[in-house]
Design a protein around this nucleic acid. Structure first.
Length: 208
DNA sequence: TGTCCCGACTGGGCTACGAT
DNA sequence: ATCGTAGCCCAGTCGGGACA
């Protein structure tokens, strides 16, 4: 099930997004196709635009008089919500790589991938940087928090944003480990729980 | 079971805009 | 200036879920 189906599946907003995927439409066109009034459609569009899932992409005049109709389209960023292909493709790709590469080569590959994923290094105290790492994981779909542990900190997850890939290829956690190391600016040690559904756990020892 | 709350929707009135 | 169309705003209704 895609993010879009989970969030909007059988709702009016979901139907509006589905129609907009087929091309830009005016409020009246959407209302006619949905069997609603223009005002009802407008209320949903306001919310969809606010959530950056739709946008006013232009205006159209059909030869008649009056104010040109505003055309609404799906926002480019929203297209990602419809895809269910990324996760299985990533899992399949990793499984295929794993079958043909040596373990050492896989580690190098995933560390380089993690390095590519890392944004600018965080600044501030170690604690602030660990929180920045946790925030980054949450932005990527994780649900993590920061805890103090003896000798440093830990980022603890409730679930894993890359669960499907981790099941196919447990070394995937190395990419996240490298990404966190780059962002936090100090050695991050992956100790994820992969017994059953994966759970993130990264230790960040205080540098001596 | 009754009440309250909230989301979804409708209808009416108004404004904005462009053609005649 | 007038008219037709589209957009915006607001008050009100309706139905479903939560809760005492």
């Amino acid at each position: 099930m895609s993010v879009w189906e989970r969030e909007y599946g059988n709702t009016t907003r979901g139907h509006i997004l589905a129609l907009l995927r087929g091309g830009a439409r005016s409020v009246d066109e959407l209302a006619a196709e949905l069997g609603l009034t223009d005002n009802a459609v407008r209320a949903h569009l306001i919310i969809l635009v606010r959530e950056q899932l739709a946008l006013a992409s232009g205006a159209r005049r059909d030869g008649g008089v009056g104010k040109p109709a505003t055309l609404y389209s799906i926002a480019p960023e929203a297209q990602l919500l419809f895809s269910r292909a990324y996760s299985p493709l990533l899992a399949a790709l990793l499984a295929e790589l794993r079958a043909h590469e040596t373990p050492a080569a896989m580690m190098r590959l995933l560390r380089r991938a993690g390095h590519r994923m890392a944004p600018q290094p965080a600044s501030g105290s170690l604690e602030a940087r660990v929180h920045a790492g946790s925030d980054l994981l949450n932005e990527l779909g994780g649900s993590t928090d920061v805890a103090r542990e003896s000798g440093g900190f830990a980022i603890r997850g409730h679930g894993c944003p890359l669960a499907e890939a981790v099941v196919a290829c447990p070394e995937t956690c190395r990419a996240v480990e490298q990404m966190l190391t780059d962002v936090i600016g100090t050695r991050t040690i992956e100790s994820c729980d992969r017994v059953g559904p994966p759970n993130c756990h990264f230790r960040i020892p205080t540098p001596v």
